[in-house]
Design a protein around this nucleic acid. Structure first.
Length: 453
RNA sequence: GACCCGUUCGUCUAGUGGUUAGGACACCGCCCUUUCACGGCGGUAACACGGGUUCGAGUCCCGUACGGGUCGCCA
């Protein structure tokens, strides 16, 4: 009989939701969902001085935004609660008694230490393979401020502070036991801690869960990512114009591969494909450019409705009247050239503006050319004579105007773009003109001519 | 410092003893096109180094170098 999979994400509410933590949450979520198991969220707030409610909210919001909903934990309850370690003290007391009964602990200057046995513990890691360690032989060191160097220290681990607060290693193991966690998927920074946890499991007489230590994400320069680094904080992705699935997709790719050429996945597809054997062993460097590309790919596959709902906050922030019926069509023009939602207003805002703001460089390119006045005049007349203001007719209107003055169509498109939209770059021009309407287009051509020619 | 983990194009990766070492991002070129972009096609670019084992090694073993991690009364 296969045991039901139970994974957990156990953040400490002492800061923001970091991309490393989010990826750990994602892998746990994916593994649980892939195997039809449960994903538990546990708050490791044993460090009362550093834990804050604000931090917890940021972390929960981040997980919600990513769509990594938890089956048990804060806000949803569950059969193994409470899910905040600060509320589980009586449970830890009971487990401490077990250790005391077994003679595994002793007091040291008010703290309680767990006696590390002199034996080799072997982690059967799903990703790193077999890793063996003898904690006693390996020893422990601490930094001596006076001597200004590392000095040998007691390898027995403190599990309870003199002030009564319990320590990570102990509560982490106790809760994983109590909550029935079957698979511990966490960052590789915990690999060296795992023998300690194994010693605790043994002293408690409980079989340890399956361990899988995932490689770390580093900066482009190979150092540890910090809050200041681009792409480090989850809540910034939302503001920067990423959609959650794209962020999940990119995080999954950083350290996991589906073993084929597919790189773009929805969360649902990741859930179907994700397995631990696709996780690789080496650390990776975060690449913001590729993350943007992944987002762009997701943008392309959004339905018009989804695109609209994702883009609306950004449109509003840019002052674009979202109730304008032309917005939907404009979004379709914008999605092809934007990787981030935040880039969309820049592409289409001018369509809805009452006044065009002209890009100096673009204007210069137009004004410096020969015969521009003639071209603009022909263009304006051409546009004026278009009767059925639809893409095809607008296009032939421009073509006819070009023929009329013996020029190529291309020679008119460029000034037409700058005159109507103010810049040499932007969305596909003819559809833009259609959205602008005949009257507005003509008006803009005339305004430009009067102003610069 | 001790111990642990890792090392394929600049980056993310595929590769599990015999491959022209594949894909993606980025970059460059060409095409398409009304500009930019998109798209299409093509190109530059990698097995850290040294020893083994083997008929044969990116793939297995050892060492070195480099990177990362752990060694807290943080988690």
């Amino acid at each position: 009989m296969a045991m039901k999979v139970r994974t957990r994400f156990a953040p400490s509410p002492t800061g923001f939701l970091h991309i490393g933590g989010a990826r750990t949450a994602l892998y746990n979520w994916l593994y649980a969902r892939h195997h039809g198991g449960s994903f538990v969220l546990r708050v490791e707030d044993t460090d009362a001085e550093r834990s804050t409610a604000e931090s917890m909210e940021v972390i929960l919001d981040g997980l919600r935004w990513l769509g990594l909903e938890w089956d048990e934990g804060p806000g949803v309850g569950g059969d193994f609660g409470p899910y905040n370690q600060s509320e589980r003290v009586s449970i830890y007391d009971a487990y401490l008694e077990k250790l005391e009964a077994g003679g595994h602990v002793y007091e040291d200057e008010g703290a309680v230490r767990f006696r590390v046995p002199d034996k080799t513990f072997t982690v059967q890691d799903q990703i790193c393979g077999e890793v063996s360690t003898n904690l006693k032989e390996q020893g422990s060191t601490r930094y001596d401020a006076d001597a200004k160097k590392e000095v040998p220290a007691n390898p027995d681990i403190v599990i309870k502070r003199p002030n009564g607060g319990y320590i990570f290693h102990f509560v982490n193991v106790v809760d994983d036991i109590e909550m029935g966690i079957t698979h511990v998927i966490r960052g590789e920074d915990h690999l060296s801690n795992t023998p300690k946890h194994l010693a605790l499991y043994e002293a408690l007489g409980v079989a340890p869960p399956v361990f899988a230590h995932i490689p770390l994400n580093l900066n482009p320069n190979g150092t540890k990512m910090s809050k200041r680094d681009q792409g480090a904080l989850i809540h910034e992705y939302q503001n920067d114009g990423f959609i959650a699935d794209a962020v999940n997709n990119y995080m999954a790719l950083l350290g996991w591969s589906g073993k084929d050429d597919q790189e773009i996945f929805t969360l649902e597809q990741l859930k179907e494909r994700f397995e631990l054997d696709g996780v690789n062993k080496s650390n990776s460097k975060f690449d913001y450019v590729k993350c943007c590309w992944v987002n762009g790919e997701h943008l392309k596959s959004l339905s018009p409705e989804e695109l609209s709902s994702h883009a609306t906050p950004f449109l509003k922030a840019a002052g674009i009247p979202v109730e304008d019926p032309r917005v939907a069509a404009a979004l379709e023009l914008a999605r092809e050239r934007a990787q981030l939602l935040s880039e969309i207003p820049g592409v289409i805002a001018t369509i809805f503006a009452t006044e065009v703001s002209y890009d100096a460089e673009s204007v210069e390119k137009v004004v410096s050319r020969e015969g521009m006045k003639e071209i603009l005049t022909a263009l304006t007349e051409g546009m004026n004579s278009v009767e059925n203001w639809k893409e095809a007719d607008i296009k032939s209107g421009i073509a006819d105007a070009a023929t009329g003055i013996g020029a190529k169509m291309g020679a008119l498109m460029f000034p037409c773009r700058v005159a109507s939209m103010g810049s040499t770059s932007g969305a596909d021009l003819v559809p833009v003109l259609e959205l602008l309407g005949k009257e507005e287009t003509v008006k803009r051509l005339e305004t430009f001519t009067a102003k610069y020619l």
